[in-house]
Design a protein around this nucleic acid. Structure first.
Lengths: 206, 206
DNA sequence: CGGTGTTGGTTGGTTGACCACCTAAGCACA
DNA sequence: TGTGCTTAGGTGGTCAACCAACCAACACCG
């Protein structure tokens, strides 16, 4: 890796963390540079404007979704339904490790920037889409165990809304009560869909 | 109302909207004063610091929860379960009316301020608590129609996480697909709890 | 009644810090 | 020698915070 690519990466890493931790507007470029061990001027060399830096972080986030988020869980879990809940457990673990400092990296920025930064919104949506695609695939490959009317995509959306809301409440309360309650109910719901479908299939066979 | 209380109120009203619309950090005090038709100096008379203004808006939000949010729905709907979904419909309507500009007033600020403003976090939690109390009461007064193990509080938490997540996705995508999908699934889940309980009761009677 | 001090609220402008943004000189490596 | 990158410094602008002068309403007292 060239030295330039290295500092560029360090800048994105630093910005990624600061934007998620304290918001976009509240983060100064000088602070990003300091955290990345780079002089403020260099920052301008790679990212002409602050928004360019923001877009680069979102692009990075999108590209590391599989490597950083999905793969560790996909490798430890095979059952598609359990993979979904493994994902939820992963976010829980992140909250735990960072003592609720980091929530969902996308969610925070959506609420802050959706109205004011249209280009960022586009990338945020792409990030959500990537996540939804992955979860949709889980449900799709378990579709034979689900009721016939169940839409994998809509189930994925439900999982994402639950997760985003749960992360938000966990950060607000600084505990896992709400997060765990939400996941328990989501599991109850999915469980019911599974047994319903199983009952239907066995009755058809009979 | 004294003229002073009036300008104070106007300031809180203006700040309330701006903080929700464009975030806390991104909102300048001069902008708040302009919107409230007040000179910047007066702002300092009522609120020594920007954070004091923030806390006042959260206090106000807490006190207007019933009047502004719950009452209109409570009055048009009697069934406790339908009241819960009426609440969700109300937030949907707000998104529609404001063209996705306003999300949940509390949720936005939670993600922005939870880590950096501990006093604000306390008030944000109080706001969530008030909302949760109301929804919990709904489920509690329908408890005879729910399975015996169902906890009204935990159900309320599930509703809140769903709502917050749904609002977030609606704002990101600028459409209601995700919002509606989430609400549909939540309804499916509650519906299943109701019929389950009904079946159990009729089988006991038999 | 009327003059006088006090209080609650307003005005407009200042201050110092910080911000994103910009530049031009310097560096190392090819 | 040239190119890619880094460095230090600087500019204009905006921010929260602050202030001193001001004003109207009121209370108190001669």
């Amino acid at each position: 890796m060239s030295p330039a690519a290295d500092t560029r990466d360090r800048l994105i890493d630093a910005a990624l963390e600061l934007f998620v931790y304290q918001g976009y507007a509240a983060t100064g470029l000088a602070q990003v540079a300091r955290k990345a061990q780079v002089l403020p001027g260099s920052l301008y060399y790679f990212f002409p404007t602050k928004e360019d830096l923001l877009l680069a972080t979102l692009e990075r986030r999108k590209q590391t979704l599989y490597e950083g988020v999905l793969r560790p869980i996909w490798e430890s879990t095979n059952d598609p339904i359990e993979r979904v809940f493994g994902l939820l457990a992963g976010y829980r673990q992140m909250l735990e490790l960072t003592e609720f400092k980091h929530g969902c990296p996308i969610g925070n920025l959506v609420l802050e920037l959706a109205e004011t930064h249209p280009r960022a919104r586009g990338l945020l949506v792409q990030n959500f889409d990537g996540w939804l695609d992955a979860v949709e695939q889980c449900f799709a490959s378990a579709q034979d165990r689900l009721p016939p009317g169940a839409s994998p995509r809509q189930l994925a959306v439900f999982v994402l809304t639950t997760m985003e809301g749960a992360v938000m409440l966990a950060r607000a309360y600084r505990n896992f009560e709400a997060y765990d309650a939400a996941v328990v109910h989501l599991r109850e719901y999915v469980e019911r869909l599974l047994v319903e479908s199983a009952a239907r299939q066995s009755s058809r066979r009979a």
